[in-house]
Every structure is written in structure tokens, then in C-alpha cells.
Nucleic acid binder design. Structure first.
Lengths: 243, 243
DNA sequence: GGTCGGACATGATGGCCGTCATATCCTCGG
DNA sequence: CCGAGGATATGACGGCCATCATGTCCGACC
């Protein structure tokens, strides 16, 4: 029974994943026959840095951070949401995962054994295109992060972070833009490359000033325009004596 | 005559490029029939940010920097050397180039019109793999840059930069490792995300101390071990009162 | 040969922010 | 019900480095 339920859940997951959505029903059920689902709790590791990648994985529910864990501080490289393949690089090259992955929320993964995935790749050239698209997205995100990181003040970088999040996962409500995502101040700090304390200083001040309000498992941006001003004016540090 | 010479040069370029090296001779000459060569002087732009990518391009001679040009400062995302495809992302997605490209040395590019390149891609699945490999390299390089950028001092970051360069293009001589590449202090600064002045301070001190010597169109590292020490010990900033 | 621009160099100054210390609030588990 | 641990918050201190100013050297060009 529950085996049957499981099979149904897998089948539905395959149907909803963008990469597989366009396939013929038979192809979809073929894939569903090879795949399984795995559930993770918030904070649980999907894998650790250095693990060998046994499978190709796609997020079907929840959100995941890919993070390089240093002894004293971490760096979050990227966030992955529903429908996105995660860890594709390691699987493709069969290299140890260059970074760990941690669930930010209760998360479900669609799991395809390496071997099966490569067979599919051989037979469906469009899958290679999907991977290229995904890697492209990664590269653009990383270059963006790189120039955000540079020179700018911490406040500016955090403002840019939340603007990016607003574009990707923001919902408009009557109180402003809502970001239904749970991030600790530590995680915000890791995302922009600073310390917890600095992140806290900015966010608590923003809370007082009404720029960005931290709520239960979400953030609210009353006015994106305010944020955009803060994000834009970070380049110039010391204003000349004249200005 | 010169047309014939040109054809010969193209044919040889195609034979030497890693991506095409494994192909059958007929396939190679087919590609050579579609491709052309373009030469650039040092400092010349291969393209500017925002240009539409008309062709797929591979570096066959020289070296190229891909750079995001800001009003007051630049960021160099990556360096490309002989045999490497450059700008692949923009071509594949037919999006405007997200960054400019500039020749660091006299450089020759193998140029394949977009349309022809896509036909080749359809017929040769291994080309898609080559692109994926290239993108993988890019992603790993960028993530590396990201965590090098974090927290570390300027001196540490520059040390890491030259260690990386030493691995990629270093030649061992009796005086130490030689890096046959011409980089201005400004370019070094752009690579590690700092200012010219800071880069100059570090490099001129290193020159005095014999850690890294700047020569005619090259650098020399007398002892890689020295550099490695400088690269490693940058994390800890304020030593505690006890230590 | 003179001058103009670019690369390299060095000093002074001030601000951002990383580090350390401390405190409050809340959730868990015993 | 109380203690432990985690997240959030706030203040003090000090160092790295961006900015600005100034100077030298060199090749390019007229």
C-alpha cells in the first residue's frame, strides 16, 4: 500500500519537475521507475563536502543552501529551490562534492542513481541542454555575487541580497513584498560574506526604521524602493570634502 | 596565396584545439571550412559588455581577461588561455555578453559563426560535454574566488592568486617558478578585488623581500614555499592577547 | 627635445567592520 | 520549574585598507 503511495508520489514529482515536464508520458513513467524520493528536516545535511556523489538530485519541495564550511565561518554559494537540480557538477564529473548542502526548510529530493542518469543523458540530448542551462544560471549567480561582494559596505550587500530574493521568491501583499523563507542572521551573514554581529546590526536597525521586518519564518519589505536606494548608494564610501 | 595560407592556419588551429583534437580528419576539415581566425593586440577588446554574441570563440594563441567594467573599478572574473572556449555562456543562451573581454597579450581567436556552431552541437553530443566541462571549470574557479575573497587580507589574496597562476601557467627555472604573463598592478588589484595602491604596496614590498620579483613581461617566484606561508596565514586577523 | 600620459611608488588620514564581551529572550528537555 | 543552549541584540576597541595627495620614471608622439 504505502509502496504504492510512494510510487504515486514519485510519479507526480517527475511530472512536475521542469526538466521532465515536456516528456512523453511513457518516458516520464520510465524515469519514475528509476527514481526515489528522500525527505530532509530543516538543518539536515543532504550531503557533506567531500562525499562521493551517488545520484543526480532535484529539489521537488523546500529550499536548500550549498555551503562551504570553514572552521570559523561559512560561505553560502547558492540557494536552490523547487524544480532545480542541485549538485549537478559533482555528479557529472564524478568528483567529490566541493561543498556541503543543507536543507533550509523541510525538503524533498528526487533521487536518480548516477548510472541511470547517464543512460538518460545519452538518450535524451535535451537533458544535456538542461544541465547547461542550469550551469549557466550558476555562473551568472556567482559572478553577480562576486561583484556584489567587492568594495561595497555590508549594508549595501545585504540590501542587494534581499532585492535578489524579492525578485526570485517574493510575493506581493498589501503590507509590501513578502519573502516566505526562513533565514537566520548567521545565514544572511554567510550569504553576503560578513559576520553575524554586522548582519544583526543592519537588520535590527532596518527593523526599527521599517525598511525590512523579520517575521515568523518570513521577511517583509514594506517598500522595495527604500531598499533599492540602500543597495545603489554603497559604492561611494568617503564622500569628498566638497560634496 | 595569402588566402591559402589563411586556410592552412585555420586548419592547424582546429587540429590543436583540445575540443576538436579527437575528431576524424574529415570532421576537422569540415570545421576548418566554417571557421576563421581573428587577431587582437594587447589591450584590445574582443567584445564589450552588452554586445550580442555572433560567434562561438576559442583562444588559440595568447591570453584573455573577462572583466566587468565599473565606473570607478573593474572586476576580473577569469583568465582564459590557449585552447579554452571563451564567452560560451553568452553564445549558448544568445544573451548579450554579461562582461567584456580584453586581450592581455597578442591573441588569436578561432571564430565559429553561431549558426554553424549549433549545427555542430546537434550532430556531436561530445561537444555538449566539452561545454559542460568548461562551465564546470568556470564554476569551480568562481567559487574558489569567492571564498578567497572572504575575510582574508589583501596580502593573502594576492599570494593565493599567484599560487593559482603558478599551478596553471608556471614554468620551473633555476631561479624559481617563472610566470610568463604580463599583468599590471591594476590588473592584479582587479583580480583580487582591491585597489591599485594596496596591490602596489604588497608587490613592491615582496620585490624588496624577494618573495616575488616583477620582470619584463613576467613574474618570478624564487620560493613557492614562502608564498604558500603568506597565503595560508591570512585568516586570523587580531591575535588574542594570550597568543 | 619637450611634453603628455601611464605605470609604479609612498605617506597621511579616517572609517568600516571584525573581534570580544555582555545581556536578554525563547525553546527544550529533565 | 529550572538550567542549558541558541538566536538576537548592543557596546567598546582597534586594525586593515580605501581614499587622497604627491612624486618619480619611462615610453610615445609631435
Amino acid at each position: 500500500m504505502s509502496g504504492n503511495d510512494q510510487a504515486q508520489r514519485v510519479a507526480e514529482a517527475v511530472r512536475t519537475v521542469p526538466m521532465f515536464r515536456g516528456l512523453a508520458p511513457e518516458a516520464q513513467s520510465h524515469i519514475a521507475g528509476l527514481a526515489t524520493l528522500r525527505d530532509f528536516r530543516r538543518g539536515e545535511h543532504l550531503w557533506h563536502e567531500g562525499d562521493p556523489p551517488e545520484s543526480f538530485t532535484i529539489v521537488v519541495r523546500g529550499r536548500v543552501k550549498v555551503v562551504k564550511e570553514g572552521e570559523s565561518s561559512d560561505v553560502i554559494y547558492e540557494l536552490f529551490g523547487e524544480g532545480e537540480p542541485v549538485g549537478a557538477i559533482a555528479v557529472y564529473n564524478f568528483m567529490p562534492y566541493p561543498a556541503g548542502a543543507v536543507a533550509l526548510e523541510p525538503t524533498t529530493l528526487l533521487v536518480l542513481p548516477r548510472r541511470d542518469w547517464f543512460e538518460l543523458l545519452d538518450r535524451n540530448p535535451e537533458f544535456a541542454r538542461a544541465i547547461i542551462r542550469e550551469l549557466t544560471r550558476l555562473v551568472l549567480g556567482l559572478t553577480r555575487k562576486l561583484d556584489e561582494m567587492r568594495g561595497q559596505t555590508v549594508e549595501t550587500r545585504i540590501a542587494q541580497l534581499f532585492l535578489t530574493l524579492a525578485e526570485r521568491i517574493g510575493r506581493d501583499t498589501k503590507d509590501g513584498t513578502e519573502l516566505p523563507i526562513q533565514l537566520t542572521r548567521q545565514e544572511v551573514a554567510d550569504l553576503v560574506g560578513t559576520t553575524v554581529e554586522s548582519a544583526i546590526r543592519v537588520l535590527s536597525r532596518w527593523g526599527r526604521e521599517g525598511v525590512l521586518v523579520t517575521g515568523e519564518k518570513r521577511f517583509v519589505i514594506p517598500s522595495r524602493e527604500r531598499l533599492r536606494e540602500l543597495a545603489g548608494s554603497g559604492g561611494e564610501t568617503t564622500r569628498g570634502p566638497l560634496a
